[in-house]
C-alpha cells in the first residue's frame, strides 16, 4: 500500500454558486446547489449535499473512526490509524464489475485537512450538519454568509470518567448546554455522593442521561468511562446515521432509551442481510464483517461499547480473531 504525499488544492470557483472545487490526489470534489460531485480518473459519483456534508464533518470529528465510513454505497474512507484510504466503488459489486472502482491512500492529516477545507467552503451560516435536521437550516442553494462558529466538534472524551476532578466535565446548564426538546419529559436528578472524612473526591457519580440529553449534536459520541481499553461511549441519535459504518472490529450497542432501526449489510459487498430494531434495554453486537446504518424516529440515547486495544483491526483482518464476539460453545 503506497501512501500518497498529496495535500488538498483549490482548483477553481463556480461564479454562479460561489462554491470552490478541490482536489486531493486523483479525486476532485465539486458542489452545486443540490449535490456534491466526486470524480476520479475512471469515474464519477453524485451525492445529495446534506448527506455528503453530514458524513464529512463526522468523519473528520471522529478521526475517521474504526474501519470503514461509507458516505453512501460508493464513496468513503477507511481508517488505518495514521493513513486513510479514500475510495470510490471499492466495496460495490457494480463498480468492481465495471472496473471503475478506485482507491488512494493518504496521510490521515492530509485527508482531515482536505475534508475540513471543503466543509468550510461548502457550509454557510444557518446550517449545521451535526444538528438534527429539525434543528438546523438547509445546505441547498448558492453559497451564503460564512460561518464563524466552530464547524467541527470532536469527541468529548473522558480519560477515566466524565466529571472527575481533572477530567472532562459533563455537559451542564451553567455551560449553556440545554436539555434537548426530545428529552424534556425525563425527570433528572443527581446521584447522592457521601464521602467519609479523608476520602473526599475518591467517590464519584454523574447523571449520564442528563449529560446525553444536553448534547446539541446527533450521531456524535462522547466517551464517558474507561476500563483499561474498554471504552463506554454515549450518544444521542435522531433521524438517520449519515454514514454507513463498516466495522473493523466487533462493537456493541446498548439502547438506553427509545428505539433505533438498524439496516445490516455485508461489509465487503454491501449485500443486505436484514434489519435489527433495538428498543430500550436491548443489547446487540455489531460483528466485524458487516456494515450498518441506524434510523432513529425520535431522538434516543445509545451506549456503544468499544474495544480500543491497539492494532486490534489487524488481528481481525488477518483472521486471528473471529468477526463475531461471543462463543456459544
Amino acid at each position: 500500500m503506497s501512501v500518497l504525499d498529496a495535500t488538498v488544492k483549490k482548483v477553481g470557483t463556480d461564479e454562479s454558486t460561489g462554491y470552490s472545487s478541490f482536489q486531493l490526489g486523483s479525486f476532485t470534489f465539486t458542489r452545486d446547489e443540490y449535490f456534491a460531485h466526486v470524480t476520479w480518473p475512471k469515474g464519477s459519483h453524485i451525492i445529495e449535499i446534506d448527506r455528503f456534508l453530514r458524513a464529512m464533518v463526522r468523519d473528520i470529528g471522529w478521526g475517521f473512526f474504526y474501519g470503514w465510513i461509507f458516505f453512501d454505497d460508493i464513496f468513503g474512507t477507511t481508517n488505518h490509524y495514521g493513513t486513510v484510504d479514500v475510495f470510490a466503488g471499492s466495496y460495490d459489486k457494480g463498480c468492481k464489475d465495471a472496473g471503475i472502482d478506485f482507491l488512494e491512500t493518504f496521510k490521515a492529516e492530509a485527508v482531515s485537512e482536505a475534508f475540513e477545507t471543503i466543509a468550510k467552503d461548502w457550509i454557510s451560516e444557518g446550517y449545521d450538519p451535526l444538528n438534527a435536521p429539525l434543528e438546523t437550516g438547509t445546505p441547498i442553494g448558492p453559497k451564503g454568509k460564512e460561518r464563524t462558529d466552530p464547524l467541527l466538534r470532536a469527541f468529548i472524551a473522558a480519560e477515566r470518567m466524565l466529571g472527575l476532578e481533572g477530567d472532562t466535565p459533563t455537559r451542564s446548564e451553567e455551560a449553556g448546554q440545554k436539555i434537548n426538546r426530545a428529552f424534556a419529559d425525563l425527570e433528572m436528578d443527581e446521584p447522592e455522593v457521601e464521602c467519609e472524612e479523608g476520602f473526599e473526591g475518591q467517590l464519584h457519580a454523574i447523571n449520564l442521561f442528563d449529560h446525553i440529553a444536553r448534547s446539541d449534536v446527533t450521531w456524535n459520541p462522547s466517551i464517558s468511562a474507561v476500563t483499561r481499553a474498554n471504552i463506554c461511549c454515549v450518544t444521542s441519535e435522531e433521524h438517520m446515521l449519515p454514514v454507513i459504518h463498516g466495522n473493523d472490529r466487533n462493537e456493541w450497542f446498548i439502547q438506553l432509551t427509545d428505539e433505533i432501526h438498524w439496516n445490516i449489510a455485508d461489509k465487503n459487498s454491501g449485500a443486505p442481510r436484514g434489519r435489527i430494531v433495538m428498543k430500550a434495554g436491548d443489547v446487540c453486537a455489531m460483528p466485524a464483517d458487516i456494515r450498518h446504518q441506524g434510523f432513529a424516529p425520535k431522538r434516543s440515547m445509545l451506549m456503544v461499547m468499544e474495544n480500543g486495544t491497539p492494532d486490534l483491526e489487524k488481528r481481525y483482518a488477518s483472521g486471528e480473531l473471529k468477526p463475531y464476539p461471543v462463543d456459544f460453545g
Partner: peptide, 12 residues
C-alpha cells in the same frame, strides 16, 4: 462513603 444512584446515573 456511599453513593445512592437511580435511573441514568453512572457510578465509579
Amino acid at each position: 462513603g456511599r453513593v445512592k444512584a437511580r435511573r441514568g446515573h453512572q457510578v465509579l
